[in-house]
């Protein structure tokens, strides 16, 4: 299972979110917290690298990356699909 801490560690390396990564709750909208389109692309790349997954096009939307919870769900579904 993908932990919220693993996601927070990655957010902590994101330029826009680094200073507040530890304080963001699981359901707070990251785009409201300063994540912009380039930041979200950087976040997607970091998640792909860390979890060794590739997000298919239909998951590359703001919704998939808008909260720590949605990121966990998105990444978990891919990690499970790969293990199966």
């Amino acid at each position: 299972m993908v932990s919220p801490e693993a996601i927070r560690n990655i957010l902590a390396r994101n330029e826009a979110l680094a200073p507040i990564a530890g304080e963001i709750s699981e359901d707070e909208n990251l785009f409201d917290k300063g994540l912009d389109s380039f930041g979200s692309v950087q976040l997607m790349l970091a998640l792909e690298e860390h979890f060794d997954v590739e997000f298919p096009d239909h998951l590359l939307s703001r919704k998939s990356f808008s909260t720590i919870r949605s990121i966990r769900e998105t990444v978990s579904s891919l990690v499970q699909a790969e293990a199966a």
């Binding site: 389109s37 380039f38 692309v41 997607m44 790349l45 997000f55 298919p56 096009d57 590359l60």
Partner: peptide, 8 residues
């Protein structure tokens, strides 16, 4: 930037 992650 977007093309850095876009797939097929």
């Amino acid at each position: 930037k977007l093309l850095l992650v876009q797939k097929s």
